[in-house]
Amino acid sequence: MPTLPSLGELSLDTFLSDYWQKKPVVLRGVFPDWQCPLTPDELAGLAMEEEVESRLVLERDQGKPWQLKAGPFSDEDFDQLPENGWSLLVQAVDHWVPEATALLDQFRFIPNWRLDDLMVSYAPDGASVGPHFDFYDVFLVQGLGKRHWQLGPKCNAQSARVKDTPLNILADFKADAEYILEPGDVLYVPPQFAHWGVAQGDCMTYSVGFRAPSHAEILDDYVAELCSRLPEHLRYQDPATAPTQTPGLLGNDALSALQALLTEQINQPQQLAQWFGKYMTEPKYLPDQGTETAPDQEALSQAAAELQEHDGPLFQAPDARFAYFESQLFANGERYECDAETAALLANTRCISGWQAQVTQPGVAALLSQLVARDLLWFEDPTAPEGEDE
């Protein structure tokens, strides 16, 4: 499915120049023929699966406000819920529901390595997850029923929070604007803007979130990557040291030498691109993450045989994250070398046509076999409803 050509009456260029990471905006009728990808019962069914991340937000539980329970849940858990005052949230629904994957794909006018996942929430009439703010951008697609949204000012880490809750609930929320969203409408909220959505009737909202690692997370991971590559014999040196009368002083010469050392290690664009490609494509919601082993020769041979017989397009798996830089392809935290044209072809679209012409390039057949064997490329369309042919 192609990306959105516009956001309702707002062009993508206008949205990106006037609103993206600047101010919230309500986008009416973005999906005029909206059909909800799943029902509340189907969402509850996902929340009962061990491999699916899910949460229940309770507006009050055992006398405490805004409490959180983690899934997986059981029929008994749902039967014990009060009539109102709770919300169910399920992460990465795009991994499990083809129509949800197709919905997420429509927002790839933002680089797809920035896209995180599609979270779906259900709330009975009058329920919400409270006034809060996030540190990332989010498109809130109204899916079922209506939701009354109140938008507040920009917040920060010092904004007062409600105590005795694990949630990021604002203690002093003041609305600057109010809107009611209907199915097919979208609310865009930039990072740190306060918002509070209350269900009107049975309500489902589809939240398209974006990855926004903190500066601390970026530096922590990148410095760890740098350190893993540095040999032990590289040490701090000061061959031009002169006699000193102030042995306790940290001199400017030493600090300049240290800054030059750090700059030399960080100012390596190719190394930065290699790290960043792996970092931003690393999966977050896969079971047994980090335990994957390389496919064995039998799996690679089977994948190669299937590729030889397949004459249609290839498809990125729903949980696959692809990016590229020059002749480097990144997929789910791994880096693969290939020609630049192949890297762009595999990373830029979910439906990959014309891949057969690239197989003659050195190493491409082996690369495709790797990606198929790792279940990152599929022969069937993962966004097609069950039972449909590609």
Results as ranks from 00 to 15, higher is better:
E217N: 08
E264W: 10
H310D: 10
E264D: 13
G209N: 03
N252F: 00
S207A: 02
L255S: 03
L219D: 07
A242I: 15
M204D: 05
G201P: 00
Q308R: 10
G251S: 11
R235G: 11
L261P: 04
P313A: 06
E225A: 09
V208N: 00
Q270S: 15
Y279I: 01
R235S: 13
L272A: 03
P295R: 02
Y222N: 00
T241A: 15
Q271L: 07
I218S: 02
L300M: 05
C203L: 11
G201E: 04
L262A: 08
Y236P: 05
Y222Q: 00
E306P: 13
E217R: 06
A299D: 10
T291R: 12
S256D: 14
A260Q: 11
A216D: 09
Y285P: 04
P283G: 09
L234A: 12
A242F: 13
P239N: 00
E306S: 15
K278I: 08
C203F: 07
Y206S: 01
Y285T: 03
D296A: 12
E309K: 12
E225V: 13
L300H: 06
T241V: 13
P213D: 00
E309W: 11
T205S: 09
Q268S: 11
S301L: 12
R235K: 08
Q271F: 09
Q268C: 04
L300N: 04
E225T: 13
Q270E: 11
D238C: 12
V223N: 03
H310E: 05
G290I: 09
D220W: 01
G251D: 07
H215V: 10
Q308E: 14
S214V: 03
G251I: 01
E264Y: 13
G251E: 03
A216F: 08
L250A: 06
L261Q: 14
F276R: 05
K284E: 10
A212T: 09
D202I: 01
N267G: 05
Y206I: 03
S207I: 03
T246W: 08
E217L: 04
S228T: 09
A260N: 03
L261S: 15
E306A: 14
P295H: 02
C227Y: 10
P213W: 00
N267Y: 04
Y236V: 14
P313W: 06
C227L: 15
P295F: 03
A254E: 04
A254V: 08
T293K: 09
D221G: 01
